[in-house]
Design a protein around this nucleic acid. Structure first.
Lengths: 349, 349
DNA sequence: CTGAAAGCGCTTACAG
DNA sequence: CTGAAAGCGCTTACAG
């Protein structure tokens, strides 16, 4: 049989032979060196060093019915929030020695999605992290056994699972209130595609609380280019003076459209986004937005997941880490696209 | 022993029992149904259906010393080109039924990197794809046995490996030539961080071929925000009329800096980027750039890799797929930041 | 074409 | 503390 990969890498048996111990003793040492007598401990350590032994993760996974890796499920990984979240997950996972495998949940219908989920579960990941920024993935959760470590980032609350909440409703509420306080009659909202958009809800509630009529929210896609036409249209309506976009990329598209329509930002129309995209501070003018701590959310998800994994490794019952609900709040970042900085500068004189 | 993951999933033995055949016969059927008599074939098919059997990939991987998954090695996955490339890989890999696991190669020194590589190889991936956009990864290749399927995207040529070339030199040459043809005395280059930057080389050669003196290239980081200061500085020098940036995000930073310095794009200074970032067409003004087909490169890498994998699966010697060198060229996309569109429109009148 | 046997490299009861 | 045994779920020669 060809040894393609690990090739002639030493096995646990080889090391056991060199160290003059049995294979089970080796295995015990690997799990917890203190379970082995001092004498054997040093012999084993020397043998491992000598042969440059590293345990075979696949054999381990077969015996334990659990592989030392984390599965990440997400829709389109190119979108900003997901890329950042995935990065955070990746970094933290690497730190604790777990590689991350990605399973993309696309919208080719539920069957396809279910296939991905099964393919994932068949590989017995130590745990799974579900990035649920689009509620495409609701049905997914029910297919993940409650005995499998799971952390959901974003999305509607699943009571019996661990989850990280990004407080988008609160942030959108705060942003809308802020824009109104700048003296605008109302705030127009350009929505991201999402069945249940907490951002939209926050915007609506803020207007309602301020007794301001809510203009119909404008639907768009994830494609920022499509938002240019929307911006143009809004730019032709002189009653529009404040625009809140569901994310930064859409805000950028809208701003480009406003420019085409001959409107200046922030002099004629102010614009705010959501997420704090890397390019938002570089945009011309820089974009007021809600900074979302995606990478932090990703890192925290791994931390929560690890606690659950430790429970199953140690044969403990599901601890509190399995149903935690942690919040990572966004924060309002004021930049030039909403004009208050310039105004403040003028007032200071 | 707790069955955490696959739980009570049926094994090949269970199916064999139901179908009334031996386990080896099951195994043969799984690999190639034609190797089994018609009668058993239908019995097995029925049993599989009945038990909803799916083979355990981990057990398979242990027996074959090769797991059905693709490892992707890359530096910081948040950068545009890598995100796009990874997406292409991911999509194609899913299509052929291979999950992709990511190993991030960071710059915490060679030891860390080597650790990642070993951790990857220990898991016996069917093959590995190396995204080598920053030549951090040169040393990595030597640690991957020549018997392991490998495709390198970008980077300097490794003669004995399969590789995809993005023709950045040619594209940069073409872009520089194009900018010069627009009537500028010279073209300033803002470099991306890379030891050996083919883009910079192409720019330099185009100037040289046109007998134009090359201004010193300006170094910067991957952080677009840092490029703002560079843009400001360039904007204060009236002799600067054409800027070529190593990538779009840097071009955007530069444009922001030019705006702060009071320069208009394209009226006072023209700017071109590289990559065709999703937001480049949304920028104000839209950015002239080189469209790179990253996703296509990713998909193609999987296709090449699969051929190599098939070689090892079928116990064939390394075929030509192991040393292919395929080119995926970029293309010049003219947008408003270089002004020729507006000028053409004027000339048309 | 097909089955009994041995093996992949680990882990975990079970006895000492 | 330690070793002989059995098992995880597959695959691949080896005989029939």
């Amino acid at each position: 049989m060809p040894r393609t990969k690990r090739g002639t890498a030493p096995s646990i048996r080889d090391v056991a032979a060199v160290a003059n111990v049995s294979v089970p003793t080796m295995s015990r040492y690997l799990k917890d060196p203190s379970r082995v007598s001092e004498k054997k401990r040093v012999a084993i350590a020397a043998a491992i060093e000598k042969l440059n032994y590293r345990p075979n993760p696949i054999a381990r996974a077969l015996a334990l019915d659990m592989s030392e890796s984390i599965a990440v499920m997400s829709a389109d990984t190119r979108l900003y929030g997901r890329t950042q979240t995935f990065y955070g997950i990746e970094r933290k996972a690497q730190e604790i020695g777990y590689p991350t495998t990605i399973y993309v949940l696309d919208s080719r219908g539920g069957d396809w999605m279910l296939g991905s989920v099964r393919s994932c579960l068949d590989r017995s990941p130590a745990g799974v992290i579900l990035i649920d920024y689009d509620r495409l993935t609701d049905s997914v959760v029910s297919h993940i056994p409650s005995t499998t470590p799971l952390v959901i980032i974003g999305g509607p609350r699943h009571e019996d699972r661990a989850q990280i909440h990004l407080c988008e409703y609160d942030s959108a509420y705060a942003m809308t209130k802020h824009l109104l306080a700048l003296g605008h009659a109302t705030v127009h909202y350009v929505a991201v595609p999402s069945d249940v958009d907490a951002r939209e809800d926050g915007w609506r509630m803020a207007l309602s609380d301020a007794h301001v009529p809510a203009p119909a929210p404008i639907a768009t896609t994830w494609d920022a280019e499509k938002a240019i036409a929307i911006g143009q249209q809004l730019g032709e309506d002189d009653s529009v003076t404040a625009i809140f976009a569901g994310n930064d990329e859409i805000a950028m598209g809208v701003m480009r459209g406003l420019a085409i329509a001959g409107k200046r930002v922030p002099e004629d129309v102010i614009v705010a986004g959501f997420d704090d995209h890397t390019l938002s501070r570089v945009w011309n003018p820089p974009l007021t937005t809600i900074r979302q701590h995606f990478d932090e959310a990703g890192e925290h998800a791994v931390t929560m997941l690890k606690q659950q994994i430790d429970d199953v490794v140690n044969n403990r019952p599901r601890g509190e880490a399995w149903t935690m609900f942690d919040k990572i709040a966004g924060e309002l970042v004021k930049r030039e696209s909403t004009g208050e900085l310039a105004r403040a500068a003028v007032e200071e004189r």
